Computed example of a mutant assay.
Amino acid sequence: MTIRVLVVDDQALVRGGFRTILDSEPGIEVVGEAADGAAAIAAVTALDPDVVCMDVQMPGVDGLTATRRIVAEHGDRPAVLVLTTFNREDYLFQALEAGASGFLLKNSSPEQLIDAVQVVARGDALLSPDVTRKVIQAAAARGATATQPTDAASTAPSEPSASTASARPAPTAPARHAASDARPVPPELASLTEREREVLELLAEGRSNAEIASRLWVGEATVKTHVSKVLQKLGLRDRVHAVVYAYEHGVVQPGA
């Protein structure tokens, strides 16, 4: 099947370059372009693409807002591949929370762009080692901010809302040793088997299914099954968000 792609960027030259690269690959077709987020949202409805290559910084409706709207209105299809230069790490984290399925540096090679589109089109998530490091840094920074003392330190903490529950600080020790941690292990995390926990830890390191299979001495089909169960039990959209979850909940520590 042909992968239908919508290219979104406020620079016509960039859109043209992406179109040329993607249209040169058999099995990929650029079905449209958009110069801002509002046009992207409309184009998704009109053109029904499989993948949206989304810029972040654009006039009017930015890529983050557009990603959030597209995911909210259309679910997992189209998959949104964010193209970023990492000028703003907070943009990266916001895009993750908005539901983006992959990230790619704008200085990546044409082959990497083609591969990224193919990866997210088949329902997988793409998170390169460089991006993983940025996610880890952002998660660590959020955790550090959340643990800063406040003037109301003596006040009992309130129950976290649904919108802020994911920003809870990571514990000082891995969650598997949470018996000595003041914060209890989230029920969904405690429901993982030991092998599923190992898979989550390796996902957090940015390991591919093949690398996880080699590390655990199992087949890739078995790894796919474990990954699916981890995502299901934790209520996560894809392996990109599994990385964020792992660092925010202390499964793996930044710098470990």
Score class of each variant (00 low, 15 high):
3 I>L: 12
3 I>M: 04
5 V>R: 01
5 V>N: 02
11 Q>I: 03
15 R>M: 03
17 G>A: 07
17 G>K: 06
19 R>K: 14
24 S>D: 12
31 V>C: 08
33 E>L: 00
42 A>E: 15
45 T>G: 14
47 L>N: 13
48 D>A: 15
54 M>C: 08
54 M>L: 13
55 D>N: 13
56 V>N: 00
60 G>F: 03
63 G>S: 10
67 T>L: 06
67 T>H: 09
70 I>L: 08
70 I>E: 02
71 V>C: 11
82 V>F: 02
86 F>A: 04
87 N>A: 07
88 R>Q: 14
89 E>T: 08
89 E>W: 01
92 L>Q: 04
92 L>N: 01
95 A>Y: 03
98 A>L: 06
98 A>Q: 02
100 A>Q: 11
103 F>L: 07
104 L>I: 15
105 L>R: 11
106 K>E: 11
108 S>Y: 01
112 Q>I: 02
112 Q>H: 12
113 L>G: 06
114 I>Y: 02
115 D>T: 10
116 A>K: 04
120 V>K: 09
122 R>E: 13
126 L>A: 02
128 S>R: 14
128 S>G: 09
131 V>D: 02
133 R>F: 00
134 K>P: 00
136 I>A: 13
138 A>I: 05
140 A>E: 10
141 A>F: 01
144 A>G: 08
145 T>Q: 13
146 A>V: 13
146 A>M: 10
146 A>Y: 09
151 D>C: 09
153 A>M: 13
156 A>K: 09
157 P>A: 14
158 S>Y: 04
160 P>D: 13
160 P>F: 09
164 T>N: 10
170 A>K: 05
173 A>N: 08
175 A>K: 03
179 A>W: 14
179 A>I: 07
182 A>K: 05
183 R>M: 14
185 V>D: 12
186 P>C: 04
190 A>Q: 13
190 A>F: 09
193 T>K: 05
195 R>P: 02
197 R>I: 00
197 R>T: 05
199 V>S: 04
203 L>R: 03
203 L>K: 03
205 E>R: 01
206 G>D: 12
207 R>P: 02
209 N>K: 14
210 A>Y: 09
211 E>T: 01
212 I>N: 01
216 L>G: 11
216 L>T: 11
219 G>F: 03
219 G>Q: 14
224 K>V: 03
226 H>T: 02
227 V>K: 09
230 V>K: 12
232 Q>Y: 06
234 L>T: 06
237 R>S: 05
239 R>D: 04
243 V>M: 07
244 V>T: 09
244 V>A: 14
247 Y>W: 08
247 Y>Q: 08
251 V>E: 13
254 P>D: 04
256 A>L: 06
256 A>Y: 02
